[in-house]
Design a protein around this nucleic acid. Structure first.
Lengths: 137, 137
DNA sequence: TCTAACTTTGCAACCCAGTTGCAACAACTT
DNA sequence: AAGTTGTTGCAACTGGGTTGCAAAGTTAGA
């Protein structure tokens, strides 16, 4: 049953098309962030532009957030239920240099920086690079 | 006199070709980080690939460091004299959402994060986005 | 129910940053 | 002077991201 999926879509005001259900399904099963090219590979038959626009729609409705981890391709991960994509929802991301997987470290809020008052602050991107537990062995 | 420039190149073990002198000159005069496309525009007559390789050479010899500020194009800025591009040399970068300029906040070291021990840590990228003092007016 | 308005999808094409192969050229060595 | 090496310029390509447009699907109104 895709009821969970449909609920989630509905709660974020996104019309539940087949495509969107499938993409959200994948995003939900995924433990790490996923990029558009990766998503394309998961859906051999689906069109790049459609997947692209699906992700954009999800992002706009705050179902997912985008992560620029410096790997060259933007990745996407589900927001937490309470997430409003506001500064206080921001967390650290971890990029594994070996497997290239990106993790949301939801328990690690981004430390505060006290900039000179001449700079206003909108958002902060913090990506830690290293080796993840799976690749440590 | 390009003596300063030549000294700098020499001190980093980079052969002082005309191209490199010119690029380093620009980088030195620049107060903010500069991208390859921007550099191309400054040198209408120079070849993209040459500029690209010049930057790569500089980076390899730790004369400059690259900055991925999430703007879509990687930028480059001079390292400080003492910089070894090690974790302790890392600093926060600031991207102005209005003018798209990127600043090295050399006085702002990246705050430490205590990851679970299952993650090893190699480097951290921290980019603050906001409005710079020039654009605040 | 039939139709008009709107949304979503699929295809194609495009943009642009980054990168590489290769040949011409320059500098350096013996 | 010839050979070796490093540098430059040109061209071409890669790959992620993005957009225009027409076809297909959905929704709502008469």
């Amino acid at each position: 049953m895709g009821t969970e999926i449909d609920n989630k879509l509905h709660s974020k005001d996104i019309k539940p098309t087949a495509m969107r259900q499938l993409v959200l399904q994948v995003l939900t099963e995924q433990k790490t962030a996923i990029s558009l090219p990766e998503l394309e590979r998961k859906f051999e038959k689906a069109d790049k532009a459609t997947l692209y626009r699906t992700l954009k729609t999800f992002e706009k409705h705050k179902l997912i957030h985008s992560i620029d981890d410096g790997s060259g391709t933007v990745k996407y991960a589900l927001c937490q239920d309470t997430c409003e994509c506001q500064p206080e929802d921001l967390h650290v991301h971890f990029l594994c240099a070996k497997c290239n997987q990106t993790f949301c470290l939801n328990d690690f809020p981004i430390p505060q920086i006290n900039l000179p008052s001449s700079f206003s602050l909108e958002s902060v991107n913090m990506v830690v690079k290293g080796v993840c537990s799976n690749c440590m062995i």
